[in-house]
């Protein structure tokens, strides 16, 4: 039982981090209609900035700067590359973000080199006991922070002018424009929000008991893709549910690996993708994704 509760808690913590990333995917997708592959490098950027500054500014200061820098970086990508393109094929925008990701990742990896950087988070290796299970404080913090941020996010989405603009625009861009919604500003804010969430996710991805930030940290963003997709790419709630499913699936597949020997071992890495494919076969636009309206 301890094992199960440990695994479930860790799965939820993992899911919380994925949720922060997946929400970023969804917000950007709603605003700009693109699956942002540059998210991996934005995450790395946030982590890198925090790692560089935490000695000087302390963790909180570094976190703040990291969040702001990453948000600004995401906003800059929107302004420089995405906004100007206007209407192009979906692939083209997607591949463009891959190009941006390659550029940014190359530079960050060159700077990080072989280093494993600590982000100076205050939790260290300390643990707490929950339901008889030992769980790292950082993991609990991940769940708490994610719950707070995601609640804030949903409230903003529901009640602020920006949230209403986002939802209106993703329903019908032109009608939203006719209401006087400043689309450029809404999109810019969306990218910035996504960037900020990615920077926070970077903290929990690298906090103990994980090994600190290194050049491959950004890859984790790839696992949030299935989360965003299986929930439905234009549904924030779907992203949240998807992220939790992926986190739990992964943790359970790893924790009960010995019972899954038939799959060849090490199946936890691909479990998210298998779950995603199964769900997409059942619902081609994810759990809560809206059906595409086809127009001739």
């Amino acid at each position: 039982m301890t094992k199960l509760s440990e695994i479930v808690l860790n799965g939820l913590a993992l899911g919380s981090v994925y949720a922060l990333i997946a929400l970023g995917f969804v917000v950007i997708f709603k605003a700009s209609g693109v699956m942002n592959f540059a998210h991996a490098s934005l995450l790395l950027l946030g982590g890198y900035v925090i790692a560089q500054l935490h000695d000087e500014l302390g963790f909180a200061g570094a976190l703040l700067v990291g969040v702001v820098v990453t948000a600004a970086g995401a906003g800059l990508i929107e302004m420089l590359f995405i906004r100007g393109l206007g209407k192009v094929e979906l692939h083209v925008l997607t591949i463009l973000t891959i190009g941006i990701d390659i550029l940014l990742t190359t530079e960050l990896v060159r700077r990080i080199g072989s280093d494993k950087l600590s982000l100076g988070d205050p939790w260290g290796a300390k643990s707490v006991e929950v339901f008889g299970a030992n769980v790292a404080q950082a993991r609990i913090a991940a769940i708490v922070v994610a719950v707070v941020l995601i609640t804030l996010f949903f409230m903003a989405f529901r009640y602020t002018a920006w949230g209403l603009s986002m939802r209106a625009a993703s329903e019908d861009r032109e009608a939203a424009a006719l209401m006087g919604v400043r689309m450029k500003r809404v999109q810019l804010v969306a990218w910035c929000v996504a960037g900020a969430l990615a920077a926070v996710a970077a903290v929990f991805l690298t906090a103990s008991p994980t090994p600190g930030l290194d050049r491959t940290t950004g890859f984790v963003a790839l696992k949030a893709f299935p989360a965003a997709v299986l929930g439905g790419m234009d549904s924030a709630l779907g992203a949240l549910i998807g992220a939790m499913m992926i986190g739990l699936t992964e943790a359970l597949a790893a924790g009960y690996q010995s019972d899954l020997d038939a799959l060849g071992g090490g199946a936890s890495g691909i479990a998210p993708y298998v779950v995603m494919i199964l769900i997409l076969l059942w619902r081609p636009t994810g759990l809560l994704g809206s059906k595409e309206l086809s127009r001739v």
């Binding site: 002018a161 209403l164 603009s165 939802r167 209106a168 939203a176 209401m179 006087g180 919604v181």
Partner: peptide, 9 residues
């Protein structure tokens, strides 16, 4: 919310 959206501009 639709009516609210009319105020966005």
């Amino acid at each position: 919310e639709n009516l609210q959206a009319g105020l966005l501009g």
